[in-house]
């Protein structure tokens, strides 16, 4: 871990402004991912801006019947909130499927969205990795790629986004609220928050330098059956091989977002039209253009079969 300077931000605007003008600055909230990465020098921020004191730790109703989740709401608190459990059960279920109780107690809403990939080559500074060291190459392609991405990936990077929570938020059409260094606020649909790697896998989000997430807003509840089905090699405390976040209505229509397969929460709205037709048709739409490796091609079958189980569960 490299030595760094540290400060506590007083306001969101101040935090964003200072982050934009301080070279190598990073925000820190729960620190459950950032500190691990700093210890092995995958992340080497020169300056940390602690945002824990900014007060974004409330969950409040919005004027149009939705819910506004402060960026600093801890994963445990969010999963346990009665309004979330009642109206956005998918979110609650996705959260408790992730990490461990200890980590969820510390991890924040915004931090969860911004966590880095768990690609093992990203974690080993001896190995080439375009995300960690742009232009160095991708060791995962042609290497141990079983856990990695099958769609939305590029010649430069096949890393996945590891979040469970983000899958639910994508299915729920969440909106990310931010403050920019100049103090202006903006709203980013969650679909647009994460970028595909293309030739620049080191750029992971649509956020500007210094731009700070202040909240995530959920629209009015849409009802339906909420299912989060996470498939993994052990029963707990493991990242998803594949996860399905689904909201399915009585008439068989619905929404599906998929985790464990792509650099961002994967949802193809057009594919959802096929839901009454069964899992195969939806999976075909979701996975069109997939480019798996020899080791992770099973994920295509797994998406379809897991989705089939989810749809059957919703019917039951």
């Amino acid at each position: 871990m490299r030595p760094f300077t540290y400060e506590r931000a007083a306001t969101a605007k101040d935090a964003a402004a200072r982050a934009a003008r301080t070279p190598g600055a990073k925000f820190i909230a729960g620190g459950t991912n950032l500190l691990d990465l700093m210890k092995i020098e995958v992340e080497t921020p020169a300056h940390l801006i602690d945002v824990n004191g900014l007060g974004f730790d409330r969950i409040e109703p919005t004027a149009d019947g939705g819910l506004r989740i402060g960026a600093l709401v801890r994963n445990t608190d969010l999963a346990a909130d009665m309004r979330v459990r009642r109206d956005y059960a998918l979110l609650s279920r996705a959260l408790v499927a992730g990490a461990s109780g200890q980590l969820r107690n510390k991890a924040t809403t915004a931090g969860n969205l911004l966590q880095r990939t768990r690609c093992p080559y990203f974690y080993d500074t001896n190995q080439p990795c375009n995300k960690r060291k742009p232009g160095s190459g991708c060791a995962a392609i042609g290497g141990f790629s079983r856990p990695l991405g099958v769609i939305g990936v590029s010649e430069e990077c096949i890393a996945t986004h590891p979040s469970d929570m983000a899958i639910a938020m994508r299915a729920l059409d969440a909106t990310v609220e931010t403050v920019k260094p100049d103090g202006t606020a903006r709203s980013v649909p969650i679909a647009d928050l994460h970028r595909l790697p293309g030739t620049t896998p080191q750029i992971e989000t649509a956020l500007d330098d210094g731009e700070l997430i202040t909240a995530v807003t959920l629209p009015k509840p849409i009802g339906g059956t909420h299912i989060y089905h996470k498939v993994r090699d052990r029963a707990s405390y493991a990242f998803a091989l594949v996860s399905i976040g689904a909201i399915i209505q009585k008439d068989g229509s619905g929404r599906v977002a998929v985790g464990g397969i792509a650099p961002k929460p994967w949802r193809v709205e057009a594919a959802e039209a096929a839901m009454p037709g069964g899992a195969r048709a939806v999976a075909d739409g979701l996975l069109a253009g997939a480019r798996p490796t020899q080791e992770n091609g099973f994920k295509l079958t797994l998406v379809e079969r897991t989705l089939g189980a989810v749809m059957a569960q919703a019917r039951a």
């Binding site: 768990r118 093992p120 080993d124 052990r234 029963a235 405390y237």
Partner: peptide, 12 residues
């Protein structure tokens, strides 16, 4: 490659 306890999974 999977040289940590996140990558080398043992039963929980």
């Amino acid at each position: 490659v999977n040289h940590d306890l996140a990558g080398y999974e043992v039963p929980v």
